[in-house]
Design a protein around this nucleic acid. Structure first.
Length: 802
RNA sequence: GCGGGUAUGGCGGAAUUGGCAGACGCGCCAGAUUUAGGAUCUGGUAUCUCCGAUGUGCAGGUUCAAGUCCUGUUACCCGCACCA
């Protein structure tokens, strides 16, 4: 057999598959469906990274196997193409972002196709296509109509040097990603989405889905539910100052209060505060600080006491001082806390600095030395009617007491904030809202969707922080859809996350112009059966899209509460030096070169064999050779091929075992061990010296999802009939997965002394008898008492002697 | 600080969930083939004081039996970061 020409063969099959639409999902809803999804890429100018194919190959294997198992499989691909890098590139090189996007997509698509993924390209989508973002805008309008989209004054990141608004990711560590100057806060009116309204459901419904545990925990932590109580303190002004606490049980230990610098009472109390100048100075200082400075670790506590206003602790009527401090956040709870320095670390630090009393109310630590925060073991002291109770019991008792006396009530809080949904940028979906002086914010009529992004000469950010669209007066000035009067269009655009929050729905019916997808298509295809993507999207894309999906479920657009029934995540592929791949580190591996030098099948095999799929693994230009050798040895099987339509007796068990292993490993996302099993099988075949047609046929089917080109080529060369991708997945017989005889070890006191071969179903007595009669065992037992004899079926015998 | 994860040969990693630690691959060593190199094939490859003993970050414990379970501890990685 001639050497395997991967370049020719891979191109040949890729062409055949695309021309025949081999992997197009069918609309035949009588077949069982399977929806495999990978995160669609952002088509950056750098092109494909070797990280992309890791995820794509893993689910390609699942998709290909499911097809062979008779499923109607949807495995689509598209482009998440709005976003800043494209816009920045466009500005720098004076090319319109639309052109940049088009070029990048063409390059990406060519690269993906060269790897032989079984994507249904007839369903390709692009978030920047007006026929797509029409529906992104439509969903926004529904959110607006239900009161879940609203406008609010918000601080944005602003780079004074670039004169430009930055996304949080671009303002990491408080400096502009591009120019390095310090980012300041600028207050602007922003569109917000009320994801907080769904906080509880986003937690609860995690119980119904099959996500890997770390994704669930990360989402739960991010949403950050806590239960506690709101407690009303009466201020000496007569106002009620409400605080939120998770430890109402420690109320007797509250020795002062702290409110955030932004608290509304500060203005109200201005004329009563004796040190108002000092307070104002502190407020201004806090406002000037960036988020980064305000949240810096181990920072010394600062604050100012309010002179002239105090508050009364409702449990004991004691008057206590009030402070302002930036360690209390305006955005969480009520923006005010009761401080219990004995049992809260931050309060303790503050109390030490300002020399405030520390009263122990939970026994168990030394509160003069450090705060005692343990809830599990403590017993209440110095707390009147709570004395002697364990903490958990006291929590219940105090809540009842607060409710009864009218001083407060139980309260649930979330860390999750509403989603800031506007960007002062050009390359995003226009927000389909106009502002009318008479009618306020008015949605444009749905019949006018899509509201297309206007063509502009300059899409650069403006000096004043307004979107580039604001300069287009012709476009901005419009009439109010409600009253017909003068109105202006919203000029901000949607964030990068908008288009990806529902794209999996569009794949179900990508060319529909009447709806985001037909009801029939959604009923059939949804939910996504298996979704794989990066951990970095756990608290962004994954959470946002669950939120949108739940909303669409509520308004009857989608048939399922949750979009994805199963979510897995891949580890990163690191550079050869074990560091993250990056241009600056010079350790980037280009997939094109690998395809060119080794072939797509080898790239696919290696990326699956590189290590545990869920963990990071360093690239090795040495190791990849092993996968190439394996495929070449599979090709060379044709030289030792014999007739035969049944497995040979020597290889029968090995085949059944391997089929079982490979089938299960694909379902469990363990492609590395599936490949190891096939390599072992190949070694067994070569040890035997020949392979028959039945054996080769099974091996090709098993290997096909991993290495689709070479297997299809051998299938054709050996005339197995039809196309390999249209045959049925291999089956195994559980009974034939076990060898008739098995080697087990004989241990004395847990140490291996001998090995014996026994029948697989041999009785315990017989096995023990054989073990006892071994020379070494006899010798070891000589003069000792046998305490115990253990036989683990098919594994070992352990004789315990004294 | 909180939350999650990881730790096994020279390297990437396996280990039926408590039952022969190191599957499979890389690398390395030896041999075959080759004018030579490369490629390919065959065999070997945890360590040591090698008939035996020791070995899964470290220290204990449970068990006939521990990489796996329990207690404590160290290092590294990721996420969040004053959330009351």
């Amino acid at each position: 057999m001639a050497n395997y020409n991967y370049k020719k063969v891979e191109k040949k099959w890729q062409k055949i598959w695309e021309e025949n639409g081999t992997f197009y999902a069918s609309d035949d809803t009588s077949k069982p469906k399977y929806y495999c999804l990978v995160e669609f890429p952002y088509p950056s100018g750098q092109g494909l990274h070797v990280g992309h194919p890791r995820s794509y190959t893993a689910l390609d294997i699942v998709a290909r196997k499911k097809r062979l198992q008779g499923y109607n499989v949807l495995y689509p691909m598209g482009w998440d193409a709005f976003g800043l890098p494209t816009e920045n590139f466009a500005i720098k090189n004076h090319i319109h972002p639309e052109i940049v996007t088009k070029n990048n997509i063409a390059h990406f698509k060519e690269q993906l196709q060269s790897i032989g993924f079984s994507f249904d390209w007839s369903r390709e989508i692009n978030t920047t296509d007006p026929s797509y973002y029409k529906w992104t805008q439509w969903i926004f309008l529904q959110l607006f109509k239900k009161g879940l989209a609203y406008k609010k004054e918000m601080a944005v990141n602003w780079c004074p040097s670039c004169k430009c608004v930055l996304a949080n990711e671009e303002a990491a560590n408080g400096v502009c990603e591009r120019c390095g100057s310090e980012v300041i806060r600028k207050v602007k009116s922003q569109w917000m989405l009320k994801i907080t309204e769904y906080a509880q459901r986003l937690i609860d419904d995690l119980d119904e889905v099959d996500y890997i545990p770390r994704v669930k925990t990360q989402q739960r932590n991010w949403i950050g539910r806590s239960t506690g109580a709101e407690v009303d303190f009466k201020a000496t002004t007569g106002d009620i100052l409400t605080v939120y606490t998770t430890r109402p049980d420690t109320l007797f230990g509250a020795t002062y209060m702290v409110i955030s610098p932004e608290h509304k009472y500060l203005q109200k109390w201005a004329d009563k505060l004796e040190n108002i100048d000092e307070i104002k100075a502190y407020q201004e200082a806090a406002a000037r600080k960036s988020d980064f400075e305000r949240t810096e670790v181990n920072k010394d506590k600062t604050g100012v006491e309010l002179k002239g206003v105090r508050a009364v602790n409702p449990v004991n009527g004691k008057e206590i001082p009030i402070f302002i401090s930036d360690y209390v956040l305006a955005s969480y709870g009520t923006g005010a806390i009761m401080a219990v320095p004995a049992h809260d670390t931050r309060d303790w630090e503050f109390a030490k600095k300002f020399d405030l009393p520390i009263i122990e109310v939970v026994k168990g630590g030394d509160v003069q030395k450090e705060a005692f925060t343990d809830c599990a073991t403590g017993i209440m002291v110095n707390s009147d009617f709570l004395n002697g109770m364990p903490v958990e019991e006291a929590k219940v008792a105090i809540k009842d007491w607060l409710t009864e006396k009218g001083f407060g009530h139980e309260k649930v809080n979330f860390k999750l904030r509403d989603w800031v949904f506007s960007r002062q940028r050009y390359w995003g979906e226009p927000i389909p809202i106009v502002h009318c002086e008479k009618c306020g914010y008015v949605p444009i009529d749905e019949s006018e969707l899509p509201l297309e992004l206007p063509v502009v000469d300059s899409y650069e950010p403006t000096d004043n922080g307004e979107s580039p669209l604001s300069k287009l007066t012709d476009w901005v000035n419009t009439t109010c859809p409600h009253c017909g009067g003068k109105a202006t269009r919203e000029t901000d655009t949607m964030p990068q996350w908008a288009g990806s929050s529902w794209y999996f729905l569009r794949y179900c019916d990508p060319h529909n112009n009447e709806a985001l997808a037909s009801k029939e298509a959604l009923d059939y295809w949804m939910p996504v059966d298996w979704y794989n993507g990066g951990m970095e999207h756990t608290t962004l894309h994954l959470l946002y899209s669950r939120f949108w999906h739940k909303f669409l479920y509520d308004i009857g657009v989608v048939p399922t509460k949750e979009p994805y029934s199963k979510r897995t995540s891949h580890g990163m592929i690191l550079g050869e030096n074990n560091e993250k791949m990056s241009k600056s580190r010079g350790n980037v591996v280009n997939p094109d070169e690998i395809v060119d030098n080794y072939g797509a099948d080898t790239l696919r095999m290696y990326e699956m064999f590189i290590g545990d799929f869920e963990k990071a693994a360093p690239w090795s230009s040495q190791s990849i050779k092993g996968c190439k050798r394996f495929l070449e040895r599979v090709w060379a099987l044709q030289d030792i091929l014999e007739e035969g339509d049944e497995y040979s007796s020597e290889l029968e068990v090995a085949f059944h075992k391997t089929i079982k292993k490979v089938s299960e490993d694909i379902d469990n996302l363990k492609p590395n061990t599936a490949i190891a099993a096939m390599m072992s099988l190949l070694n067994d075949i070569y040890a035997k010296g020949s392979v028959n047609k039945a054996e080769l046929r099974s091996l090709l089917i098993m290997l096909n999802p991993f290495a689709p080109h070479i297997t299809e080529e051998i299938w054709e060369a050996q005339s197995f009939g039809g196309m390999l991708n249209e045959t049925a997945w291999v089956t195994f017989d559980e009974e034939k997965c076990v060898d008739k005889s098995v080697e087990i070890v004989v241990q004395i006191n847990g140490k291996v002394r001998e090995k014996i071969t026994i029948g697989v179903d041999e009785a315990q007595d017989s096995v023990l008898e054989k073990a006892r009669s071994l020379e070494k065992i006899k010798a070891a037992c000589e003069g000792k008492t046998v305490v115990k004899e253990i036989y683990i079926k098919g594994r070992l015998v352990n004789i315990v002697v004294k």
